[in-house]
């Protein structure tokens, strides 16, 4: 495949895996928790680097999962201690992220773990860093990592499809049915962490947040069906990232940044034009109601 194609495929993988997970986050109203986790996995990556002295994928995943779970746990702990949820998210993620940034600037400055990389990712360099995989030949490292995380996410979602669905809509009933609501919550948090860390390397922290939230929010405006929302959200993620790539190419700007911008534009389109929940249809239906009343 060509250089350009690899970037688009990598972006699409990020969009698809983040999009599908994002659908759950929106339905469960924990989008900001995901935002927090996608920031704090930085600390996990740094810690993994300090322990293993390498940018080994397995260590990074382990570190990210640990710190991601810790974030979710700490937020819950503070929240149950009487602090508002948004405030506890704010305290936890800023602290852990600050710690990560300090550790990078103190100990890891020479590696390619610099701050800019963290924020913007280096999706443009993705095709050059390759690993050879048995019968497939040379494949970009980020592609392999994102691909396997995407498959893992899909596997977990199909395995726990019903549980995810019930706990999203009615946790009380789920608990009454004997579904381990908290476990499912933490499974989702693990998925957010590993997906963030896999996407982190190629697209950076901020884009991960955009990709986790924007496609899900867009899909939420377009459908009322749970399964449709999952598929649509993943599809919109792919669309966002691809559109973002071409915007970046046209204007010669940061690829990850323009992917976020594309996600924003596509959300705005859905916001205005959505057949059921869009601003325009709201306007028209209000108009129609007025006419009927007259």
């Amino acid at each position: 495949m060509s250089y350009e194609m690899w970037i688009i495929v990598t972006g699409a993988l990020v969009g698809a895996s983040c999009g599908v997970i994002g659908a759950f986050l929106i339905l469960r109203k924990i989008a900001m928790l995901a935002d927090a986790i996608s920031h704090t996995v930085l600390l996990g990556i740094v810690l993994a680097f300090l322990v293993s002295h390498s940018m080994n994928g397995a260590f990074m995943l382990a570190g990210a999962v640990l710190v991601g779970l810790f974030t979710a746990f700490a937020v819950q702990l503070l929240n149950s201690g009487g602090i508002q949820e948004d405030a506890s998210i704010g305290v936890v993620f800023t602290s852990l992220f600050a710690l990560g940034v300090i550790l990078i600037s103190l100990y890891a400055k020479d590696v390619h773990l610099d701050v800019e990389h963290v924020l913007m990712g280096e999706i443009a360099f993705v095709p050059w860093e390759t690993v050879s995989l048995l019968s497939f030949g040379e494949l970009p490292k980020a592609f392999v990592m994102l691909g396997s995380i995407f498959l893992l996410d899909l596997l977990l979602i199909t395995l726990f499809y019903k549980e995810f669905k019930i706990t999203s809509f009615d946790p009380g009933m789920a608990a009454a049915l004997g579904i381990p609501v908290l476990l499912i919550h933490y499974v989702l948090m693990v998925m957010v962490s590993v997906t963030s860390v896999a996407a982190f390397d190629s697209v950076g922290a901020i884009l991960v947040v955009a990709m986790l939230i924007a496609p899900g929010a867009t899909a939420y405006l377009l459908t009322d069906r749970y399964s449709a929302m999952l598929l649509l959200s993943g599809g919109i993620g792919v669309l966002d990232s691809t559109a973002g790539y071409f915007i970046a190419k046209a204007f010669d700007v940061s690829i990850s940044g323009s992917m976020a911008v594309a996600a924003g534009i596509i959300f705005t389109l859905a916001w205005i034009l959505s057949p059921r929940y869009g601003l325009l249809s709201r306007l028209f239906s209000r108009h129609a109601v007025h006419k009927l009343q007259r």
Partner: peptide, 17 residues
């Protein structure tokens, strides 16, 4: 909270661009 996350990341993405 979703709209906060959305606005935050999209605006920041625009900033990076």
């Amino acid at each position: 909270d979703t709209s906060i996350g959305l606005v935050l990341s999209v605006f920041f993405g625009a900033g990076i661009v």
